[in-house]
């Protein structure tokens, strides 16, 4: 194909997206579109399954049966979300094995927030409230993204996600209104998870390299800084409502902007964690690699059995 032809196709392609048409798996797409989507979607999927680990940590120790089943269901949903997203990414021409390999070798990233440890039960509340809260802010706009399979996966995810945040906030609310010890637990968890949650919305706009292209393809609707501001503005009143204090001495309502001013984020910490030096990076990857490698004989057995059954049926037919 000549450069001229490709330019034409690209122009038509971009026009389709501007008309709010969806791109489906077999449609022609610029190589950059394919690669960018593979990267974003697979990293989204990796985040879901790595995200199972910090919360899965507290399943056996949930303080009540009701909390236990809710947490089990939430973590299970995350596995499901990973699955929807991996499946959607596979439509772009990459296999599940390749994606796992990228995750396990560090070639692909996942949301850095999951490299923090869950130290107390209250962390379950903080994660549901803050981390899922931030995730929802990112995810709702994606329900309308240009790539069909991604949009459909996100619609499913968002439907299920709303229970996650409510569950988390309910946990925090109960703690904050409980005994002094419980309130301490809640405040302590908020102290530890607040800043990482802000960082979860990504680096500052000036350090974010992919934004413009992503906006055109509806992979991104708002900039990182805008999303961060939205998150803060919606969350601070929630904390006020349950009597918890956001751990930011510079947090202040700005009447002119109609938004909260907030203190400086420790970007060194962010980049340190992203580069692999957070508190739990090694453990998270070890767990995922372990599960995959220890499971190899199981997956092989299932294939061998399936082949045997298929041959048996073939022989019967003959």
């Amino acid at each position: 194909m000549s450069e001229e032809q490709i330019k034409n196709l690209e122009a038509q392609f971009n026009a389709r997206i501007e008309r709010d048409e969806k791109i489906e798996p077999k449609d022609w797409m610029p190589e950059k579109y394919r690669k960018t989507h593979i990267r974003q979607m697979s990293q989204h999927a990796h985040s879901e399954i790595v995200g199972m680990l910090p919360e899965g940590n507290w399943i056996t120790r949930a303080p009540s049966l009701r909390r236990k089943v809710a947490l089990l269901a939430k973590v299970q949903d995350e596995a499901g979300h990973g699955l929807y997203l991996y499946s959607a990414t596979e439509t772009l021409g990459i296999s599940r094995e390749e994606m796992y390999e990228q995750l396990h070798t560090g070639k692909a990233k996942y949301s850095s927030i999951f490299n923090y440890p869950t130290l107390t039960w209250a962390d379950m509340g903080a994660i549901g409230w803050l981390v899922d809260g931030a995730a929802i802010i990112n995810q709702v706009p994606l329900c309308n993204t240009s790539y069909g399979p991604y949009a459909r996966a996100m619609i499913r995810v968002c439907k299920e996600e709303s229970f996650h945040q409510r569950q988390g906030f309910e946990i925090m609310m109960k703690l904050a209104k409980g005994t002094p010890e419980q309130k301490d637990l809640a405040q302590d968890a908020l102290n530890r998870w607040w800043w990482p949650s802000l960082m979860m919305l990504g680096p500052k706009d000036e350090e974010s390299i992919h934004t413009e292209q992503s906006m055109k393809w509806k992979l991104k609707r708002k900039s990182n800084d805008d999303l961060r501001q939205q998150f803060i503005d919606q969350t601070v009143p929630q904390a006020d409502l349950i009597g918890l204090t956001i751990p930011d001495p510079e947090l202040k309502w700005n009447k002119e902007r109609g938004s909260y001013d907030f203190g400086p984020i420790n970007w060194d910490e962010f980049w340190q964690v992203v580069k692999g030096y957070g508190p739990c990076n090694k453990e998270r990857i070890k767990a995922r690699v372990g599960a995959w490698e220890e499971g190899e004989w199981v997956r092989d057995a299932a294939m061998a059995y399936a082949d045997k059954q298929a041959n048996k049926n073939l022989n019967k037919a003959v």
Binding site: L83, Y84, S87, A88, E90, R96, R152, A153, R156, R299, A302, M303, Y305, A306, Q309, A310
Partner: peptide, 8 residues
């Protein structure tokens, strides 16, 4: 509804 991997 979507896809998934299975042996059989």
């Amino acid at each position: 509804f979507g896809s998934l991997h299975a042996a059989d």
